[in-house]
Structures are given as structure tokens and as C-alpha cells.
Amino acid sequence: MTLNLTTTAKTFGDGTKALLPTNLKVNTGEIVSLLGPSGCGKTTLLRIIAGLETPDPGGKIWFDSDDVTDLPVERRQVGMVFQSYALFPNMSVRANIGYGLKMKKLPKADIEARVSEVLEMCQLNDYAQRAITALSGGQRQRVALARAIAPRPRLLLLDEPLSALDAALRETLRDELAILLRKFNITAIFVTHDQNEAMAIADRVAVMSHGEIVQSGTPEELYRKPNSTFVASFVGSAMHLAGEINGSKLKLKGGEVSLPADGTGCEAFVRAENIQINKNGSLSGYVDTVTFLGTHYRVGISGVISEPITSIFSGNKVPKLGEKIRLTIETQSILLLPSKA
């Protein structure tokens, strides 16, 4: 199913503009992530698509060629996975998953068959008869997903589906969710504030800030060609090289670097993996911190700009704390972004 949103906005009763007029198109089978810090409007956007919030007049929501703007949530045929899962404590796992099918008034035998199929798909067979309270966090998450997809919704919506889990489990389930969503072959939108989650699961990420989508693209596009200082620092945490830009030269506290183009009216950003420790480098700084991360070291360096910067170091000769080192930043890796007005 194709989802199409046109000039959809949301103003709350107290006048807060939670969502500015937004256009969004999600193609059949596409998995799109709405990524942004808390309060950026991503959950509001998801709830509008679900039918749990009414958009301001003028906004339209299309499921294929059906205008669903005025349909209440129970008639939109969307599957929804909530942050808290919202599993029904008065029903078993099986009954939870079958509830949507029961609402569709399907024959009992069909319900049983579909529930068994979904249980199998989500590897929940062993838990079918359990009470919700007897499940672990990860199992609950899978039941919530199974319940949402069982009635074959037109669109699957997930609101921070992994944020209620602890860090270790989150990473495992992130990959599992990515595999499951592709197996269901369903159009899906999921909201997250975690860029790793968005990148691991989504085909396309829409980055949101202050009630609007500021950039939308594949994870690679966002990482390599951010269109704003916000996207650069939010996705992949690029560091702002604050200094004096003079044509294609950037003068920093610890030395000078060449910019890939004329940087007038821009700000320069760089990512940690593009800062190399090199004894012939044009920049100098002091080692503040060295963190061993298994495959590489993360080195915190002061003195290059007024803030500390981070470099990824994967060699054998580890810099010592307090040591004066020289660095290079490859010209082509510097992101030049229009400075905020």
C-alpha cells in the first residue's frame, strides 16, 4: 500500500504547533523511519497516520486512492505497535494475537489458523497459552508485533518499539525486527530517536526537527550528504569545526585545513573516522582520553578547536594521555553546510 500525506499539520489545543504542514509519501513495501529528538513531532505524525490524532483542517491522508482522513482508527486497518506494547493483560498471548481477527468477524477456524501462522513466524509457539504478565520484555515486544500484523493491516506503524528494552536486548531485537519486517513484506513506518535503530531497520529515514521533516533519504544519503547542520550532527554525530572560514581555507585553533570548496556562509563538519592521527598532519592537539572499543580506539583530543574532538584510531601504537599529536583531516571528507540564519 502507498501512503500519501499532503500538507498535514497538527496544532494542539494550547496553540503548540506539534507538526508543521508536512508532505510524506511511503511506497508499497517500503520501511520508513521517522527519526528525531524527543518533541520533534515524530510521534504526533505517526498518531495522525494511525488515526489517533486528527490533523488540522487542510491536511489529507491517503491510503492508495482512499482518503482516510476522516476515518477513525478502528476503520483504517492499521497495525500498531506501541512503546509500552499495550498488550491486553486479561487475555493470553493467543487471544491477544487473535483479537484483531475476531474484530474482523472471521470464522473461528480461520482465526486459529492465522494465529498459529503468526506465532510460528514470530517464534512464539512455546508461549501461545501464556499470560502476558508471564512474558519477558523481548517476548512482549514480539507478541505486540504479532498482534499488529495478524489481521493483515494495510500499514504497520511502530512507535519506539524497542525503547522499553534494555540496551543488550535492544541490539539483538533490532536486527530481528529488521528481518521480520522484511519477511512480512508490509509497508511500515516506525518512530525512533535512535539513529542506529533507524539505520538498521529502515529503507529510508525521514529526519525530523521542530515539527517538520528536514531531510529524507536512505541511511547512506543522510550520512554522506546531510543537507543541514542539524542532520549532520544528529545522524552519525558529525563534529562542528568552529573556526574562521576564509574562501576555501579554515583556520582553527590548532592549525589550518583546506575546504573542498569556497566555504563562505557555511559551517564545516567532520566525522570522527575522518580525523587521522598522522605525524605529518597540519593540525596539532593533545590527547585527553583514550577509550578501547575492541576493534578500535576512540581518542578524545583537545586544542584543535575550543571543544574537544574525537578521532577513531585503529593502529597499534596507542597515543598516550597528554601527548601532543598531529592530525590530518582529508579535505574531501569535510561537510560544508549552510550556517543557520
Binding site: P72, V73, E74, M80, S84, F88, A148
Partner: peptide
């Protein structure tokens, strides 16, 4: 004591009136 609103939203998303 329970998150009634979200539970109901969950049921509504599954088609319950």
C-alpha cells in the same frame, strides 16, 4: 493503575469499536 488510554488505542487499532 493501568494505562487505560493506550490499551484502548491498542484495541481500536485492531478494529474494536
Amino acid at each position: 493503575a493501568m494505562d487505560l488510554k493506550t490499551l484502548e488505542e491498542g484495541a481500536a487499532s485492531l478494529g474494536a469499536s
